[in-house]
Amino acid sequence: MTAPARIRTGSGEKASWLLEVDAMTVAFGGVTAVDGLTFVVNEGEVLSVIGPNGAGKTSAFNCITGFYKPTGGRVRLDGTDITGMRPARIAAMGVARTFQNLRLFGELSVLDNVRAGMHVRIKQSAFDAILHTPRYHRSEQEATDEANRWLDFVGSRGNRYNEVRNLPYGEQRRVEIARALAREPRMLLLDEPAAGLNHNEKEQLLDLLRRISDLGTAVVLIEHDMGLVMQVSERIVVLNYGKEIADGTPTQIRSNPAVIEAYLGAGDDVEEEAEKIAGLSDDQVFGQGEGEQA
């Protein structure tokens, strides 16, 4: 394997690489959105991918999950080359994702949305459905029970039997995560899960992320909320202009001159963000939510 030597793993004891992104490049016409990106995700770790807007984070996500075909480089999942595979196959191999703008099945019930994640596991043929065989009833019951379990897990409190689009925004975010979890992924990719959430909801998200990690699922996070990123991540990869500029633990990233430069140099609107990275003390970063509220 061609894992580059410069990768510094945050938690040394986890040796197995779940995902390897190797020199991945994506170009749209003349614009190179992702330029030779290389990083690994370890089994069960929480990794954040940060960077200014337009740094290529979502493009990288789309490549890993098969929605874009990289113009160069390879992506491997557990040693298997998944570059250019159909998104459905990659998902079936255990990679689930959420989308930056919620992509729920708006007109379907909350339970149906979560059942989507179980689709590949539900053992039932079209004939079972037409004839209402015992296998049909059994598999439907199992699917419903499991969907309810995942909704409980993410703490969804809304009406599960009605259309998902009638739920408030924060609840919809939760349902989207429940749907991805129902895929029982080995790796969960979350694209800005905290966007549009209020402070309370963010606290709950933080807790949820930790519990997901406890399940043994690797979590890869794109997030602009530095507070959240610093608190939850074991490792952080920083992108700018499609290139990786840093990879390390939150502490290392905070003091990395290249990162500060990238955020400060990128323009006025992100200065604050950079200050946040640079300025947060260890207590603030690793302290619990209660500390911040004081």
């Binding site: 992509r103 708006g106 379907l108 989507a116 590949v120 459905a129 037409i130 749907r179």
Partner: peptide, 26 residues
């Protein structure tokens, strides 16, 4: 009955959002 089973659900997922359905392994 087809519409209520696994395949029927998959049809509705595709109707609602093809990308999201793909992302769920469909």
């Amino acid at each position: 009955r087809l519409g209520r089973g696994r395949l029927g659900r998959a049809w509705r997922f595709v109707r609602e959002d093809e990308d999201a359905a793909e992302a769920m392994g469909i």
